[in-house]
Design a protein around this nucleic acid. Structure first.
Length: 454
RNA sequence: GUGGGUGUAGCUCAGCGGUAGAGCGCCGGACUGUGGCUCCGGAAGUCGCGGGUUCGAACCCCGUCAUCCACCCCA
């Protein structure tokens, strides 16, 4: 027999799970629409060369490649790949349809992406991302609004203990340069620095040494990060106002000195921080100089949203002013944010955050079958009820009534109708409220109305 | 990619060298026009898969696959 399991790291969603997913997607869509973003969908598959070189070395390795078909299949060569994220396809779309899109294109996209990663808690090989991106503007108002939209989604889903960490690629460059880390070691140093909140200053020192960063440089870096930690920015769970962005910015400014790109980055962070104060994300955005983020296409601000009880993040994003240029030959500024649907669902499920309605009954009414001869009569009643706007399930067989009721009860259907010999003789239909147990007979023509307003 | 745990009935698990178990669920009945509660009865497993050790393996050993946890990285 063939295995009935889905491929590793990929999942089937049974009805309850689909309803939970649809509930979350509904909230996300509603919030994104409120911010004036428009929907976009792109193919599951991209040309391989579209994706290669956009995500850094780690990313390249995690792309699911598709072998050439037909006679070329044996060569093991790939020319297509499953999309790795929704940002690169967006950049391709913007390059392709530039003239048809508005000057400030704001789009959201909720679709699956694929990564050939090793599955873990909250990490899958096929998962949905909920992306929002705004293209065409360099204004920091974009960053502020993206933080606000992500924050609104989480608040409406019932989260209260999240924070949005904010940093800047050029500030990181400035910090590393100022500490004396050579440019070719920036990547290594960032990975180590990113772990400050997990492994502490001593852990970072060891990690930097392991990665070959000279002691002089790592000392400088740690001296700086120690100051960050003491200002409260090093703690993972800061939904409270235990952080002081102005103080963090001052420390950064002193450390970076006259490094030009670094200074520009700090100004942008200051700008974002000020604008966020006017949005619903006020008080949730914490400037955190240790935030790194892996994707290589980011050029400016980077952000990430996390909750205390999940190792990874619920979402992240940033500014990528050069990505569209890789397809168009002319840069289009862009900034986006992505929420991970499965991560959100993992946490919501564990915390029991889904409202009771999110896993609602499969139907409003179940129509029972009296006997084999009256099956058509049951179908006719179901039709009448459906025309009255109800969701109706017909029990398909003339089983014992007790069995039919037990089935309805187990399925959580709130009302059951019975069309027995007596009812049919009088033009009535019996309606039973499964919760209270009360039953009454009503005129058949009134049944739908009675059921809609019980 | 690294280290560790776990795979036994539909589900949750017990058994840890000597004939395969429980609870829940499922099916039937007590209750031939009505679920939930109770009682009675029943069906159900090549003990993940392959090899090895042994008179004998669910149990010990090796491999493999799946799954979970911690790293790495990430949504």
């Amino acid at each position: 027999m063939a295995s009935a399991q889905p491929p590793r790291g990929m999942r089937d969603f049974l009805p309850d799970a689909v309803r939970r997913r649809q509930y979350v997607i509904g909230v996300v869509t509603d919030v994104y629409e409120r911010y004036g973003f428009e929907p976009l969908e792109t193919p599951a598959v991209e040309n391989l060369e579209t994706l290669l070189g956009k995500y850094g070395e780690e990313g390249n390795q995690l792309i699911f490649k598709i072998l050439k078909r037909g006679e070329h299949e044996a060569s093991g060569q790939a020319d297509l790949a499953l999309r790795y994220d929704l940002t690169v396809p967006l950049a391709r779309v913007v390059a392709q349809y530039r003239g048809q899109l508005p000057r400030f294109f704001r789009r959201y996209q909720i679709q699956p992406v694929w990564r050939a990663d090793r599955p873990a808690r909250g990490r899958f090989r096929e998962f949905y991302q909920c992306d929002v991106d705004a293209l065409g503007s360099r204004s920091m108002a974009v960053e502020a609004e993206l933080c606000a939209a992500a924050s609104d989604v989480l608040v409406r889903l019932g989260f209260s203990d999240f924070s949005i960490r904010l940093n800047h690629r050029q500030v990181l460059t400035g910090v590393l340069d100022a500490a004396g880390v050579s440019p070719d070691q920036h990547g290594e140093a960032l990975v180590a620095l990113d772990k400050l909140d997990k492994i502490g200053a001593d852990g970072v020192r060891r990690e930097l040494a392991d990665r070959g960063v000279p002691t002089t440089a790592s000392d400088g870096l740690l001296q700086f990060s120690a100051g960050i930690a003491s200002s409260g920015a090093g703690t993972a769970s800061a939904s409270d106002a235990s952080f002081d962005n102005a103080d963090t910015l001052d420390r950064l400014s002193r450390f970076v000195g006259d490094h030009e790109a670094g200074r520009r980055g700090i100004e942008e962070l200051r700008n974002i921080d000020a604008l966020v104060a006017s949005t619903s994300a006020h008080g949730r955005v914490r400037i955190d100089a240790t935030l790194a983020r892996g994707l290589s296409y980011y050029t400016g601000a980077i952000m990430e949203v996390a909750v205390p009880d999940l190792a990874g993040s619920l979402g992240g994003g940033g500014r990528y002013d050069n990505l569209v240029g890789m397809f168009l030959g002319e840069d289009v500024p862009a900034c986006g944010f992505s929420l991970g649907l499965e991560r959100i669902i993992v946490v919501m499920t564990e915390r029991g955050m889904f409202p009771p309605g999110a896993e609602s009954a499969p139907a409003d009414v179940m129509v029972t079958v009296w006997n084999a001869e009256s099956l058509g009569e049951s179908l006719a009643l179901a039709r009448e009820l459906r025309e009255g706007g109800l969701r109706v399930e017909v029990y398909p067989e003339a089983d014992r009534l007790g069995k039919q009721f037990r089935y309805a009860s187990a399925r959580g259907v709130p009302f059951v109708t019975v069309l027995g010999d007596d009812e049919r003789a009088q033009g009535l239909v019996a309606i039973k409220d499964m919760k209270s147990g009360a039953q009454r007979a009503v005129a058949r023509g009134d049944a739908a109305r009675e059921l809609k307003a019980p």
